[in-house]
Design a protein around this nucleic acid. Structure first.
Length: 281
DNA sequence: AGTCAAACCTGGGCGC
DNA sequence: TGCGCCCAGGTTTGAC
């Protein structure tokens, strides 16, 4: 679930809470989430926060970085100074904070606290030197960003080289960084392209339209603070709103807003895929 | 090399 | 009410 717009939202909100502050203590309750090196970043100041695809990177002034992947159900929730809402905590923060699903607690200066909740425990954290991020395989192999270095020329080349479905291709993190199931479904609907189409079968016009559609739905996702269809919440504990304007994701059996046909669900590459069989060719 | 299932996990929704 | 089953899905791993 958490994809580029969700992680971007987390990045933006955490920048306000963390930059210029120190971690004074880290408590790890589930060792598989954060197995080692917790002490390396204690006492150093957060300098920058970055995002690569779905991966969050918190940089410290001592030359180390905390790399976080929240997978599907990870939640980073801050409590403390600078929290401008009386942030009623979303009930999607299963078990509360701290609670049953709180696996890591970062105690910050000025009494701030950053909680990491993860119901399914798939997410992970690790510390690496900031200039050695590429030692993490996922970051080393990450494809270009759809709102960054992904040009039409590169996109055309990616599609032309792949005979898998266009949906699997755009979700492949080694080809393009940051697209997951929600925005892949919606972008293909927006571009009126059938998700089972082979990537290399798209015409130049279709490729252009799909790239524009990806940019459009991702921007909408960011402007809505991400999609809280599932367990995603933002660092102030509130929900995102993209699910309210989602085009087809999760809408099996509902009417297509464009033509009135019933939205169908199939499985592509092991993942639920929603589309309009009338609009998408 | 490429394809595919399994593994990591837990809660929610379903049928009976 | 409750039990068992299947599903959700990002990424890695291991088997054919």
């Amino acid at each position: 679930m958490p994809e580029l717009p969700e992680v971007e939202t987390i990045k933006i909100k955490l920048q306000r809470f963390l930059i210029g502050h120190n971690i004074v203590d880290i408590k790890v309750n589930w060792i598989k989430t954060f197995p080692k090196d917790t002490e390396v970043i204690i006492g150093s100041t957060v300098s920058t926060i970055r995002r690569f695809g779905k991966v969050l990177v918190i940089d410290f002034e001592n030359g180390y970085s905390l790399v976080i992947h929240i997978k599907m159900t990870g939640q980073l929730i801050y409590r403390g100074p600078n929290l401008n809402t009386e942030s009623s905590l979303s009930k999607k923060v299963y078990g509360g904070i701290p609670g049953k699903h709180t696996h890591v607690i970062f105690n910050l200066d000025r009494s701030g606290i950053l909680y990491y909740n993860d119901m399914r425990k798939f997410g992970w954290m690790k510390v690496v030197k900031s200039d050695e991020l590429r030692s993490i395989a996922l970051l080393k192999s990450m494809g270009p960003e759809p709102l960054g270095s992904l040009t039409l020329e590169i996109f055309r080349e990616i599609l032309n080289k792949n005979k898998k479905s266009v949906k699997e291709t755009i979700m492949d993190q080694t080809k393009i960084g940051g697209i997951g199931n929600i925005y892949a479904n919606d972008a293909l609907y927006f571009a009126k392209i059938h998700p089972t189409r082979k990537a290399n079968s798209l015409t130049e016009d279709e490729s252009k339209l799909l790239l524009h559609s990806l940019e459009e739905v991702l921007k909408r996702g960011i402007s809505k603070g991400g999609a809280s269809e599932n367990s995603y919440v933002t660092p102030d504990g509130t929900e995102g709103n993209y699910q309210d304007i989602a085009l087809v994701y999760g809408k099996k059996g509902r009417e297509c807003k464009n033509c009135g046909s019933i939205i169908e669900r199939i499985v592509i590459g092991g993942r639920g895929t929603f589309y309009c069989n009338t609009c998408q060719k």
